[in-house]
């Protein structure tokens, strides 16, 4: 998993979407909505991501599409972390 994303993110996804918890259930291209990520679960996941990484994701970055797959969401997390690290 570590080549795709870190263990924290993997754990957050598993908590948010129990249906993905079976072996091999999380692939970069898995459709999160089809896996049960409704609006409430989306916001819950967002709050946990922000807490776990100590980041604040601005609304402008929450365009439709960022919650499509584990890969799109991880890309957003990476971008925001890099931006915040550069600003420090």
């Amino acid at each position: 998993m570590s080549d795709r994303w870190d263990a924290t993110y993997e754990e957050l996804l598993r908590e948010a979407l129990p249906r993905l918890a079976r072996p091999g259930g999380i692939e970069p291209g898995t459709r999160l909505k089809a896996a049960g990520l409704d609006s409430l679960a989306m916001v819950e996941l967002l709050i946990r991501i922000e807490g776990a990484y100590g980041i604040g994701i601005p609304d402008d970055d929450l365009a439709p599409g960022v919650f499509d797959t584990p890969a799109t969401l991880w890309e957003l997390i990476r971008t925001v972390r890099e931006r915040e690290a550069a600003a420090r």
Binding site: S39, M42, V43, L46, D59, L62, P64, F67
Partner: peptide, 8 residues
């Protein structure tokens, strides 16, 4: 689609 940005 915009629910995550609703409060903003």
């Amino acid at each position: 689609d915009g629910h995550a940005r609703l409060l903003g």
